[in-house]
Design a protein around this nucleic acid. Sequence first.
DNA 1: GCCGAAGGTGAGCGCTCGCTTAGTGTGCCG
DNA 2: CGGCACACTAAGCGAGCGCTCACCTTCGGC
Lengths: 211, 211
Amino acid sequence: MSTAQETTGGEVEPWEQVTPDAARRLLVAAVEAFAERGYHATTTRDIAGRAGMSPAALYIHYKTKEELLHRISRIGHDRALDILRTAARAEGSPSERLAEAVRSFVRWHAGRRTTARVVQYELDALGPDARAEILALRRQVDAEVRGIVEEGVAAGDFDVPDVQGSTLAILSLCIDVARWFNVEGPRTPDEVGALYADLVLRMVGAAPATP
Amino acid sequence: MSTAQETTGGEVEPWEQVTPDAARRLLVAAVEAFAERGYHATTTRDIAGRAGMSPAALYIHYKTKEELLHRISRIGHDRALDILRTAARAEGSPSERLAEAVRSFVRWHAGRRTTARVVQYELDALGPDARAEILALRRQVDAEVRGIVEEGVAAGDFDVPDVQGSTLAILSLCIDVARWFNVEGPRTPDEVGALYADLVLRMVGAAPATP
DNA sequence: GCCGAAGGTGAGCGCTCGCTTAGTGTGCCG
DNA sequence: CGGCACACTAAGCGAGCGCTCACCTTCGGC
């Protein structure tokens, strides 16, 4: 679905799909500013300044400040969904696919923390229409994870009394990484991903992956 | 430490300690407004209006809008720490104490969602000094949970390869409840608390509590 | 070499923000 | 009953906000 090409590690700067160049620079500047200070505390002058442009230039490429947030949120959710879909539809047992889903999802939230933070925590700043569009994507995100859990239960690999509750908890655990992860901290995104994959397998009552 | 009296259920409206009455009404109004729209999107006129007062009245009781957030954050963190301390220092095995800590901590984040949301997500809006004070409280929160986990490992009840990482994950899971919990949703705070206590015991490799 | 489109700027409009100030009503003390 | 401390309001200040507008460059096509 996404036209951005995958790299070997599965990590992409997804902003390449945004053209022209000036529009992309503004978008990246907005992601940084929103992640640092929050949407409402960020000024259009700050965004334009970070992109090396005058405040008025922003409005050549975007109708409003909210449209910037909408575009960021849309692209980010598309990417997050893409990551989960790739893991969910890979080959392997439900345990392996759930572990890989958590691993790559967490890696994205830690490694692309600024983007993830905006995507996950600034939803309320969107208007009703944009908000509804994003919420639909979130339901698809939920469905992907729930699908793996259900398959694991059906196969007898998982022991999960409350599938929807556990799915919610798994996603919640992964998403909150964007809140606390610190690039200067002791853990790399890969390490957090591995730790979390193990914890999630325990949560669903599967034997820890020992490949 | 806290002067607010406990009720039977352990749930307290902690604002009773705030006097005079007008100052408390303003504080409660600010909690609601900050939780709904976020700190930066909330105006002092909105807070005063919710409390049934003129905008100027706010400044009789609080020096700035930020002082309101500081007071809320302080009281909320005190309460959260109190909840965890009570559970950590109760009688019982590490499994029982960890389950009770998670149960009551989650119950607070769900049941007092508006307060918890402000407390957990608006930290960055505080100035450096207030921020440092709150971060010190958060380290104590972390230490309480880590203490229980360490005792469980020492007693051979838990199987935890990375104590600090698992502690972080447990707290992260609980805190994120404030983000997604919906009062109109299908689960009560008690139900989420019970579900999460079970999930956390699985995460630390303890047998599920079967009382 | 001229032209229009595309992409940019400097100045600034109208508005709302956090916060202040001068003045008002109320109740308690002597 | 006079006086005064206190809690509060009406009005508004200076600043900074999102956004607009008139104008300026640059550049490919004919």
